[in-house]
Nucleic acid binder design. Structure first.
Length: 638
RNA sequence: GCUGGCGUAGCUCAGUCGGCAGAGCACCUGAUUUGUAAUCAGGCGGUUGUGGGUUCGAUUCCCGUCGCCAGCUCCA
């Protein structure tokens, strides 16, 4: 029975001991397999080669894999990785191949070698094309462990892998004079691997461990036809065009300088964007009954000893001395928040007490991981701590989840993916009972809101379970932004208490939460999501007023002033340039509206409205335009 | 932090097999007075990231260093 051809399963008869090529032939003869382009085959859920023997019973379900199946794509790309290793073995006979898996962005192969140069990649691509043209058959070889140890004796990495394999037969694949240890399956002939590109070289460690030998990794991508490869490379180009570091410079939003590696400098226009985000954030937090505090950047080291940061994360903290006493720049806001909490007595009647802080934190990240606004050494967390009783955890989490979704929706992120992480197997603190209640509370909160989530057992923080929120941008990329973490430990460490209904002092539960995560990173995400073409409410420059000539400068200035007085961000382009030039520049700055002022407009008190899309709304009375833009701005239309 | 690549004008990038450092854009000035994505001309602008070495001579070759980029590792 062959499935997956469209329509129901199809039955074909082939002689006993046939391979799947016979099945394909029979299907084609019956008019079924047209344009199938099978790469491998799924027999009872297990991917095998097309040359494998067809099972004797028709009860076993069979499905051919093409590039359009995830599993088929994997076979294809993995075969391309072998093709690469084959080419390397021809051009660099002394190089030892190690492993070559398929990853999300194609495939890679790690080699024990001296570094490859970009020219080497070009030569390798040429050699790979040669091997494709030779159309070598790809054969599966089964061998015993001893045979495998002999066959791969010269490759210490393969020997190590063979030794670690579980018992049973070991498989390898041969194409021409190249043999590689591999579970398979593979495409049957090298000819099928038509379109590929080697994309980059990088160092990588054997088994991903820094202590091990460093290998040379070659990344590549492959497709069954040139058109798909082209489309893929074009999409990569588009992603490069959206790079927030590039747009940030073009739009004059922020910069980085050698004098402060990893510390962003916000320019005036970037601050408008940032303040707009913050303004909205404050507005919605007021609505959700938060209050806001601000705690100092540098605090005595004893505080970090109490919080536990000194023990666990000292290497990431910036330390200094004040009057010869050790201090640290804060890497997190919660210890400071706890000092504020402790500055007076609290009653259960105040709970849940929602305390927000847009706190600037500094962390010493490794130099190699810094990346624009996405990974910096100083950033502002949209932090908040909710102090409550254990009974209030669930309701507080529900309320926070609602807030998270409301905020994401305002920025246009409606595709949100949620993960729940539970108690780590080792190193966690707190009683079983407390953990059980907290995990149940988070789970109940998610269920009550009908939210699908992924469970990550053992991935929680050492002090409590957490919910993480990932937003998907318009390119389909997922970004972890929000987090809700229940914490039983910190209030205890700090001896924070509240007066309970029965008059006793109790320790509150503390819920840490961030929604945007890092303001810097979130703005980076916004820039890439919108490719700099911000919706009106977020755009640093919303309107450009464009006089057609000097004669209309006064009228244009008047228009600009009125827009600004109405609370819109407008600039007037008084340069001695032609209209086409002014429009072009406004377009390149992604300004939402261009208001053209010439003789007709000046006489009638109108402006000719051109939208960023290129749509021309014609001349409209200024008052009408202002009302319309204000409405779009105030409603935060996307 | 590790491996590799790269640092030339505010930006994007040429160039120099070791011999007077260039273009476009931006900016300034002048002409032009402009109607929906680039008007023309002129001008300003650089210790070639930085420190050292080799050399008659270094932007070019070598070493150190800082930064950027890609990946690895890390990410409370």
């Amino acid at each position: 029975m062959v499935d997956g051809l469209g329509g129901g399963p199809v039955k074909v008869d082939v002689p006993p001991q046939s391979n799947f090529f016979e099945v394909l032939k029979a299907l084609k003869a019956a008019g079924h397999a047209k344009g199938l382009n099978a790469l491998a085959v799924l027999v009872d859920g297990v991917a095998v080669d097309l040359v494998a023997t067809v099972p004797g019973s028709s009860a076993v379900p069979v499905r051919f894999l093409t590039f359009d199946d995830a599993a088929g794509q994997e076979v294809f790309r993995h075969s391309t990785a072998h093709l690469l290793a084959h080419a390397v073995s021809r051009l660099f006979p002394d190089v030892l191949p190690t492993i070559g898996p398929v990853v999300e962005e194609g495939f890679y192969y790690d080699f024990a070698a001296t570094p490859f140069t970009p020219e080497d990649l070009e030569r390798l691509e040429v050699e790979m094309r040669k091997i494709v043209a030779e159309d070598l058959p790809v054969q599966r070889l089964e061998m015993t462990r001893d045979e495998a140890l002999v066959a791969f004796a010269s490759n210490r990495f393969k020997v190590q892998m063979i030794r670690e394999f579980e018992d049973g037969s070991i498989t390898a694949y041969r194409q021409g004079d190249f043999i590689d240890l591999c579970r398979g399956p593979h495409v049957p002939r090298t000819r099928m691997l038509k379109s590929f590109k080697l994309t980059k070289v990088a160092g990588a460690y054997w088994r991903g461990d820094q202590k091990n030998e460093q290998l040379q990794r070659i990344y590549g991508i492959s497709f069954p036809d040139a058109a798909r490869l082209e489309a893929h490379l074009k999409a990569l180009d588009e992603a490069r065009e959206r790079d927030h570091r590039k747009i940030g410079q073009e739009m004059d939003l922020f910069s980085f300088h050698d004098e402060g590696t990893g510390f962003p400098f916000w320019h005036a226009r970037g601050m408008v964007l940032r303040n707009t985000v913050v303004e909205y954030w404050r507005e919605v937090h007021r609505k959700y009954l938060y209050n806001e505090i601000l705690t100092p950047a540098i605090l005595n080291m004893s505080l970090w000893q109490t919080s536990g940061h000194y023990d666990h994360y000292r290497k990431n903290m910036y330390v200094t001395q004040i009057d010869e006493v050790d201090h640290a720049v804060k890497p997190m806001n919660c210890p400071g928040g706890l000092l504020v909490y402790k500055s007076r007595l609290h009653s259960y009647r105040e709970f849940p007490l929602r305390v927000a802080e847009l706190g600037a934190v500094h962390r010493h990240e490794l130099s190699g991981v810094l990346h624009g606004l996405f990974r910096v050494r100083s950033f502002t967390q949209d932090d908040a701590h909710i102090f409550c009783t254990p009974e209030q955890v669930e309701a507080s989490v529900v309320e926070t989840i609602r807030l998270v979704f409301e905020i994401y929706r305002t920025f246009g992120f409606t595709d949100v993916h949620v993960e729940l992480s539970t108690r780590p197997l080792q190193g966690s603190i707190g009683s079983d009972e407390v953990w059980r209640v907290a995990e149940a509370g988070l789970e109940a909160a998610l269920k009550s809101q009908d939210i699908d989530y992924k469970l990550n057992p053992g991935d929680g923080a050492f002090y409590g379970p957490k919910i993480d929120f990932h937003v998907k941008d318009c390119m389909g990329r997922s970004w972890q932004c929000g987090t809700i973490q229940v914490d039983f430990s910190m209030p205890d460490r700090f001896h924070a208490t509240y007066e309970a209904e029965d008059g006793t002092r109790k320790i509150p539960v503390m819920i840490h939460r961030a929604i945007l995560g890092s303001l810097e990173r979130f703005i980076g995400i916004l820039i890439e999501n919108f490719a700099g073409k911000f919706p009106l409410w977020l755009n640093p420059t919303q309107v450009k007023v464009l006089p057609i000539g000097d004669k209309f400068s006064d009228y244009a200035k008047q228009v600009g002033d009125e827009l600004v007085r109405a609370g819109l961000r407008a600039e007037v382009d008084l340069r001695n340039e032609k209209l086409g030039k002014k429009i072009r520049d406004a377009q390149m700055q992604h300004v939402n509206y261009q208001l053209v002022c010439g003789a007709r407009e000046a006489e009638t008190g109108t402006v000719a409205v051109r939208m960023r899309s290129g749509e021309d709304l014609g001349a409209l009375p200024l008052a009408e335009v202002i009302a319309r833009l204000k409405d779009e701005n105030d409603r935060r239309v996307l």
